[in-house]
Design a protein around this nucleic acid. Structure first.
Length: 320
DNA sequence: AAGTCACTCAACCGCAGGACG
DNA sequence: GCGTCCTGCGGTTGAGTGACT
């Protein structure tokens, strides 16, 4: 028997709030203040769940909330925070005055994540997808060839017909794979020894159709270095770790764009340049020890320890 | 004009943890 | 220590809307 519901679901209104309901909440809070949300519906004359009232106040009615669109600086901060602490939206939202965790989460899911994917950056690890795939492939025990198979495929621009923009994108599959216990027992992704396509294993939890790539290996215009959407406002190179796949000239180009960016983490007291440098060192260090990790889990734990040693102040700040 | 699709975002859900008796 | 209540959180859903065919 599970936890009893917080209210009688059959007798409470659900769905969008009306102006009248908003007014009731506002009037009540103006007099009594916030708190004890379970009693507010009754006292304020609302046929709503207390939880719903709290959410409405927290995410919409609070007077200190901003309702305009996210600025490039805010977006940059969200991305940087996500890179460091992941999907801890409430912690990230606390760094953005006037924004709620719901705002940040929605903006990430609808805009920023897609933008990173379009840039060829894995929104989970914030590394270039080519690097992530290469690492994943190595961990899966298929790292014998001089040029990793995924590298050949992901040299191509992640255009609209790329697997990166399809619903069954590589990083999503990898994310599923790494969270699935059977990942530790058998490699989920394997390379075809002769074909120029890659395939996913015939596992029940993995979609089989649409998982193959028809990307041509002839193109060399990696979009990682060619931001095409609002890129001038972002310091994209911050997410591009040293990538063995990218031509040196491309990486130089990225560094150049970083130099011209007018936004750095120095603008935020909690993300100083030292931390930024440290993150690069960590990434570099981690990539150096990548192949010696006995397992994927071990590697994650190693990196976690490195982060804890390098970011004590930062992580404390985030209640890490 | 009508239908379909993709996207956004407000709202919901279930779980976890803290406070309190 | 245990049970209950309240709040916070992250993931997910679905209604609304605009773009496209």
């Amino acid at each position: 028997m599970g936890r009893p519901p917080c209210c009688d679901k059959s007798n409470v209104k659900k769905g969008l709030w009306t102006a009248e309901e908003d007014a009731k909440i506002l009037a009540y809070v103006a007099i009594h203040g916030v708190g004890n949300w379970s009693l507010i519906p009754k006292k304020a004359g609302l046929n709503r769940c207390g939880k719903s009232c709290r959410l409405r106040w927290t995410n919409y009615l609070r007077p200190d909330l901003k309702h305009d669109s996210f600025s490039p600086q805010e977006e940059e901060l969200i991305i940087q925070c996500h890179r460091i602490i992941g999907s801890r939206w409430s912690s990230i939202a606390r760094k953005l005055p006037g924004r709620t965790d719901n705002d940040v989460k929605n903006h990430w899911n609808t805009k920023l994540k897609k933008r990173l994917v379009k840039m060829g950056i894995d929104p989970v690890t914030h590394k270039p997808v080519s690097q992530v795939l290469t690492e994943f492939r190595n961990i899966s025990g298929h790292g014998n060839s001089s040029e990793p198979f995924f590298v050949r495929n992901f040299k191509t621009e992640p255009s609209n017909n790329s697997i990166l923009t399809q619903s069954n994108s590589a990083w999503e599959m990898m994310r599923n794979a790494t969270s699935h216990e059977s990942y530790h027992n058998s490699p989920m992704i394997f390379t075809h020894p002769t074909s120029s396509e890659f395939h996913f294993s015939n596992h029940s939890n993995f979609p089989l159709n649409g998982a193959t790539s028809s990307c041509s290996s002839s193109s060399s215009s990696a979009s990682i270095t060619q931001p095409n959407e609002g890129a001038q406002a972002f310091c994209w190179s911050d997410y591009l770790l040293s990538d063995p796949v990218l031509p040196l000239s491309s990486q130089t180009q990225v560094v150049g764009s970083a130099a011209t960016s007018n936004l750095t983490l120095n603008q935020n007291e909690n993300f100083n340049s030292q931390g930024e440098c440290s993150s690069q060192k960590i990434a570099s260090k981690a990539s150096g020890t990548r192949h010696s990790a006995s397992s994927f889990v071990d590697e994650i734990l190693d990196k976690d320890q490195e982060m804890l040693s390098q970011f004590p102040q930062l992580l404390n700040d985030f209640d890490y």
